[in-house]
């Protein structure tokens, strides 16, 4: 069995790792945002800037062989789980070297070696599939855990409730990981769910353990996740975790869109103050275990890695049209 991160303790061992994971995600997303105007990344991109704390905390709490599925905004989840950066960037560029050989794009990331089983943009569609992964694992007596990433809007889909019910019924080793960023595209929670009804309490109605915490506190995410993973792996059934967070940029694309009228600049600035990266940096500093030189070095190395991924993706060949029908049937 692989060494389990569930036994790690904060902050000496995990703090720097969480910080680096978040920084790497942000640098990748910013590179995509910067390069998007060149119009060579010809697919929709849903950036995770502002939400890195959730991905980092979840990724750090999982074993490499644990599995993850996600939705349209999956870059951070993929990277935090150990997904191959080169294959992701090449996929966004539509290249043959992409993780889906250019058949998927940003909304369809996959890296089976890293346990990232797949992301699709139909809201809620991967939730039952993730439950099915854990169902097979239980049937085949594997001790893996599966994480189903979902946005709070996915809890408005019927399939979410069907999936949680089945997972609860069979006590499956699955964690429903909800990132509540308050908006489904431009539609706020207030037009979608009753006032005062917390998402995690709705999930708890299915008879499973459900908790809520600050998603911009990577350490809180990590520690709740470690506990949830312990429960799921021990056969004590599924867990629902809701993490409050906020996307800084537009729903789809590289720009900021606070001026178009669906949310206020003031609301954005409040959340901007709660930057998960800066928050952890402050905390590490306060606890006397922030290694500034190490972070500067990490950023330098990561930027080089990202530059390498982008130039490799740009230089890689497009899929040959002769392969149009490849993989239609196995």
């Amino acid at each position: 069995m692989t060494a389990s991160p569930e036994t790690s303790t904060f902050p000496s061992q995990i703090g720097q790792r969480l910080l680096e994971s978040m920084v790497r995600i942000r640098l990748v997303e910013e590179a995509i945002a910067t390069g998007y105007a060149e119009q060579q990344m010809r697919c929709p991109v849903h950036l995770s800037i502002g939400q890195e704390g959730v991905a980092a905390g979840v990724g750090a709490a999982l074993r490499p062989d644990d599995q993850v599925m996600s939705g349209h905004r999956s870059h951070a989840h993929y990277l935090a789980k150990g997904g191959d950066l080169n294959a992701m960037i090449a996929e966004i560029y539509g290249k043959e070297t992409g993780c889906c050989r250019g058949r998927g794009g940003s909304m369809h990331l996959v890296d089976l070696k890293a346990g990232f089983v797949g992301a699709v943009p139909i809201v809620g569609s991967t939730i039952p599939i993730a439950v099915g992964l854990s169902f097979a694992d239980k049937q085949l007596k594997r001790d893996r855990v599966t994480v189903a990433f979902l946005g709070e809007a996915a809890t408005e889909e019927g399939v979410f409730h069907e999936s949680v019910n089945f997972a609860a019924l069979h006590q499956l080793p699955v964690i429903f990981l909800c990132e509540n960023n308050l908006y489904s595209v431009y539609s706020p929670l207030s037009v979608r769910q009753p006032a005062g009804q917390a998402v995690y309490k709705t999930a708890a109605g299915h008879g499973i353990r459900a908790e809520q915490a600050d998603g911009n506190d990577a350490v809180a995410v990590y520690s709740l996740m470690c506990d949830a993973v312990r429960q799921a792996r021990s056969g004590s059934g599924p867990v629902f975790l809701e993490f409050m967070t906020y996307r800084w940029r537009e729903h789809c694309g590289p720009a900021f869109d606070n001026h178009i009228g669906y949310r206020t600049e003031a609301e954005y600035l409040t959340w901007r103050e709660r930057d998960p990266v800066e928050a952890l940096e402050r905390r590490l500093r306060a606890e006397g275990c922030f290694d500034e030189a190490a972070l500067v070095d990490f950023k330098r190395r990561t930027s080089a890695e990202i530059n390498g991924a982008f130039s490799a993706a740009k230089q890689a060949p497009f899929p040959d049209a002769a392969g149009l029908m490849d993989h239609l049937y196995a």
Binding site: V117, P128, V131, G132, F135, A136, G158, E162
Partner: peptide
């Protein structure tokens, strides 16, 4: 199974990916 045709159709896909 539960009366959840949609959810269970997704569940069998995940089960198939993982070897059933």
């Amino acid at each position: 199974m539960p009366c959840s045709e949609n959810g269970m159709s997704g569940v069998v896909l995940g089960a198939a990916i993982n070897g059933l």
